[in-house]
Design a protein around this nucleic acid. Structure first.
Length: 911
RNA sequence: GGACGCAUAGCUCAGUUGGUUAGAGCACCACGUUGACAUCGUGGGGGUCACUGGUUCGAGUCCAGUUGUGUCCACCA
């Protein structure tokens, strides 16, 4: 009869395999979650990537981290949901579309809102698939049936509901305040969307004459054009130089406006002249001074950054053009004292890449203190959420403490339109600051409320602005699960378990989610926040679009496979939260570290091939679990190691030590399993008697299947492929849904492992001696092992065949002393533990080389003896150290002294 | 100005609460194709753990300071 042997090709081809399993997982809905199934929930929501984006290394890294956690918990038996989706990225999308329009010679206003949005949606449909399909290529185990988009119907309902509730509770207000204005996008942005850049600028010293008398005050500014909006000059109230001027007025040059000199504590008398010009409409500090002193606020700017009618002769000029002209004018009029070079930071718009302008305008704000204080309450009283690593707690906390009101309105079209309706028929069809408005969940609702208040025949118009994208992102952990409806998903999977994200987004996203969730759901949206580091490029630089130093994950996936890339990223992650560096050669698109991971996948592949070729076509199930009574030393050893690794891997993952878990598996699989165990069982498989062979087969099959399970969260494709071949289960089952191995403590035998260390050490010593003596690898040699310890001799005898197989030894003698072994003059000698290893080889030994080697070994051992005996003769050590440490040192000393004795004896013989 | 990281082999990094002679991968050197794997095997060389001081019987590990380096936050006109 001919059995159909499961076979694998000689080399692992990731491309075909990975594509196949990705498709298969999705088709068979392996990752579809079901709240009805009950059990322990484990839920993660994806940090939604920008719908306009394409996959970068940060996505690959973050998705892999999440996928490892999710796959691990799924196998651990949790009822697991990883919910995918994308974010509408208001400003980014709108910028791209407007650029397209500009190329066609149009603006969004030419199209009108409806047509613009239609175009935006069309564009979203076309490009929104890109990022999602690229995520698929990472092998992420998400539930695609639950995919969400921040602008889809359900989430939009959640946004409106949230807005209305906050408004009704007095936590959202509309008002005229100084906001960060981006002249490029012509929209307000939040404080977070402003980044400060160091710029080489100037400090202009200006002279403002006193209205009364002949004196003047000197002020300095980095932005001379704002003097057109000055409404005061401030000095410190205790500054004796200027105290007497408080209450007087100065005459503003050019515009010749009389403005008061005021006293305000915020002025630093030490800086500059101690006099500050105050422009309340164009500087955040001045705004506050202006409020304290009821100063007029004069806005001199249009929304596009050009100067308006309040700028007198400079009206219509761009802000930077006006700066030069104002300076020229001041100089001509004799008001310019001097100009100094001055390095200072300028606020830039994160998106628009131009300096932002503090500008007075009417916007919607979230009153943040009550929300932030509630989140702080969770943190301080319930230690929720837990940050991993813990140090980020402080960053998060400090941020919440100092948080100010959040400007949420954006003068854009792509986004959630603000659910506020103005009764424009009361203000001549226009929306003005005085127009009454109704905040409601729909226009119909607003109409009813408006008519109740203002009578019938009203005309309503919705606020044209949209909400900050992060407003909807802040609801993500519960809006995606169905909120505000009480869905089964929400009831079961919320709050989510872990949020995995980068530190750069703690403020943008994490804090907003905790504030929103605290308010709307009364609990924190996740138990743990796992903060990872950045993936840096080969030069340790942050990858960025502007530096054009991104490493495309898809290029590496194509070259080495998804599993290899995933494994590399995880393996590097070791110190949780640390940035990782990815080796990369830009000329060849090669990465040494990803290649190493590819080699690891290939190693597993080939080890599995070997195992399967030697199972006589049987599956692990048919073979049965290893039966204790038939097992040999090596079988029990690898099983002990395996169960140790099961426990160790689970412990690491439970503590977010994914890198350590990955490295531990690498060492076990490549080292213990491939290098030692497989080599040890080869002879039994080829010519062993039936019981011995079967025990080896059972152990090989059992451990291999266990390895596949342990490694699956890290390398899901190659393990799924091998597992199907190994188990022959067909399409009804997936490795992804198998139970994670349990660590069975009865198998763990430290004493046995120590014995095995002696065998391994002996093999290594023989190999080393052979190499030193230049003995041909193919040549079998006789070996004598001498040990006074009966226990060690027993171990060596038990492992006799292992030593013979792995060190290519023909006759092996194990003896308590060398007296009966004849003449040993012509031998090479080494030590393993306290066992003396001799290879008698007449005539071929280079005596000088041998002596040098022995002397080197001896000096090492002597150094150790010195250190150990020094420690043991130290009273402090013997009195205070734990007994097992002392015993360990004593044992080590005995062994070292024995080794030294052997080495000295051999050296004597060589003289 | 405030806060937080990091500094260990040529390179990239491990080193859990202090405890034998500080480890791995890559790179390097030598040898090797015995049917799992040359995307491999065996062996080897390579480190004053940034510096200074302290605590301790004992410090890569804890404390203080110094230097270098990176990041975040704030920002005085």
């Amino acid at each position: 009869m001919t059995a159909t042997y499961p076979t694998l090709s000689t080399q692992y081809d990731p491309a075909v395999t990975e594509a196949r399993w990705q498709k298969w997982w999705e088709e068979y809905q392996i990752f579809k979650a079901d709240p009805e199934r009950g059990g322990q929930p484990y839920c993660v929501v994806i940090p939604p990537p920008n719908v306009t984006g394409s996959l970068h290394m940060g996505h690959a890294f973050e998705s892999t981290l999440i996928d490892v956690l999710v796959r691990y918990h799924r196998m651990k038996g949790c009822n697991t949901l990883w919910l995918p989706g994308t974010d509408h990225a208001s400003i980014a999308v709108q910028t791209i579309l407007e650029r397209q329009l500009k190329a066609e010679g149009k603006s969004r206003h030419d199209l009108g809102r409806a047509e613009f949005l239609q175009r935006a949606w069309q564009w979203k449909v076309e490009s929104g698939g890109t990022i999602v399909n690229q995520l698929r290529r990472l092998g992420v185990s998400v539930d695609w049936s639950r995919e969400r988009f921040t602008l889809d119907e359900g989430l939009s309902r959640a946004v409106v509901a949230a807005f209305v509730q906050l408004y009704d509770a007095g936590l959202i207000y509309r008002g005229k305040y100084l906001v960060n204005w981006c002249p490029a996008t012509q929209s307000a942005v939040s404080d977070l969307e402003v980044e400060n850049q160091e710029v080489e600028g100037h400090l202009w010293h200006l002279r403002y004459p006193l209205t009364q008398g002949t004196g003047y005050v000197e002020v300095a500014t980095t932005r001379p054009e704002t003097m057109l909006g000055d409404t005061a000059v401030a000095v410190h109230p205790n500054d004796t130089r200027y105290q007497h001027l408080i209450g007087q007025t100065v005459t503003l040059p050019i515009l010749e406006r009389q403005i008061p000199v005021i006293g305000d504590e915020s002025v630093d008398p030490e800086f500059g002249t101690g006099c500050v010009k105050v422009t309340p409409a164009h500087d955040p500090n001045d705004f506050e001074i202006g409020q304290r002193h009821q100063l007029p606020m004069i806005n001199i700017l249009h929304k596009d950054g050009s100067l308006n009618e309040n700028a007198g002769p400079f009206q219509g000029q761009d802000r930077f053009e006006a700066r030069g002209n104002v300076v020229e004018q001041l100089k001509a009029d004799g008001f310019l004292v001097k100009v100094e070079n001055h390095r200072h930071s300028v606020p830039y718009s994160d998106r628009g890449k131009v300096p932002i302008e503090p500008l007075l305008s009417t916007q919607w704000f979230v009153k943040i203190r009550p929300l932030a204080d509630q989140a702080l309450g969770f943190l301080d009283q319930k230690a929720a959420p837990v940050f991993m690593p813990e140090r980020w707690t402080k960053v998060y906390r400090d941020w919440l403490v100092s948080l100010r009101d959040w400007c949420v309105s954006r003068q854009l079209w792509w986004g959630h339109q603000i659910p506020a309706w103005y009764v424009v028929s009361l203000t001549e069809g226009q929306i003005t600051e005085e127009t009454p408005f109704i905040v409601a969940t729909s226009k119909a609702e607003a109409q009813i409320q408006a008519e109740a208040e203002y009578g019938s025949d009203l005309q309503l118009q919705q606020d044209p602005d949209v909400l900050d994208t992060w407003f909807s992102s802040g609801l993500w952990p519960f809006s995606t699960l169905g909120w505000p409806e009480q869905t089964a998903d929400l009831a079961f999977y919320y709050p989510t378990t872990t949020l995995v994200t980068g530190f750069d987004i703690i403020f943008f996203w994490v804090a907003r989610m905790t504030m929103m969730a605290g308010y709307f759901t009364g609990q924190m949206p996740f138990q743990t926040v796992y903060i990872h580091g950045l993936v840096r490029d080969e030069n340790n630089k942050k990858m960025s679009k502007s530096a054009n130093n991104g490493i495309n994950p898809l290029v590496l996936i194509k070259k080495y496979g998804t599993d290899a890339l995933r494994y590399t990223l995880i393996r590097e992650v070791a110190g949780a939260g640390q940035d990782i560096r990815l080796e990369y050669n830009r000329k060849t698109d090669e990465s040494a570290s990803v290649e190493a991971s590819r080699n690891f996948a290939n190693k597993l592949w080939n080890a599995s091939r070997f195992v399967m070729l030697n199972l006589d076509g049987l599956t692990p199930e048919r073979l049965g679990k290893p039966a204790v009574n038939t097992l040999e030393l090596s079988d029990r050893w690898i099983l002990s190691r395996f169960h140790q690794v099961v426990r160790q891997t689970a412990d690491w993952i439970d503590n977010y030590g994914l890198g350590e878990a990955a490295k531990g598996l690498y060492e076990f699989i490549w080292g213990d399993f491939c290098d030692w165990y497989i080599e040890l069982v080869k002879s039994r498989l080829q010519s062993g008697e039936q019981t011995s062979k079967q025990a080896a087969q059972q152990t090989l099959a059992y451990v291999l299947e266990g390895i596949l399970k342990l490694l699956h969260p890290f390398m899901p494709h190659v393990t799924e492929e091998i597992w199907h071949t190994l188990t022959q289960v067909g399409d009804e089952q997936s490795l992804a849904l198998q139970a994670y191995p349990d660590s069975d403590l009865v198998w763990i035998d430290p004493d046995l492992e120590r014995q095995f260390e002696l065998l391994i050490g002996t093999v290594r010593t023989i190999r080393n001696l052979r190499a030193e003596a230049g003995i041909k690898p193919g040549l079998k040699v006789p070996v004598i092992l001498q040990s006074e310890r009966g226990h060690d001799r027993q171990t060596l005898t038990a492992g006799q065949s292992y030593i013979q197989d792995l060190a290519r030894v023909d006759s092996l003698a194990i003896t308590p002393d060398l007296a009966d072994q004849g003449d040993h003059q012509q031998t090479i000698v080494g030590v393993a533990g306290t066992t003396q290893v001799l290879i008698p080889l007449a005539g071929v030994v280079d005596v000088d080389a041998l002596r040098a080697k022995l002397e080197k070994d001896l000096s090492k051992v002597e150094a150790e003896i010195k250190s150990l005996s020094g420690r043991l003769s130290n009273r402090g050590f013997v009195d205070k150290a734990p007994t097992e440490v002392i015993q360990g040192a004593r044992n080590a000393l005995v062994e070292a002294e024995k080794q030294a004795e052997i080495l000295r004896a051999r050296l004597d013989q060589l003289r």
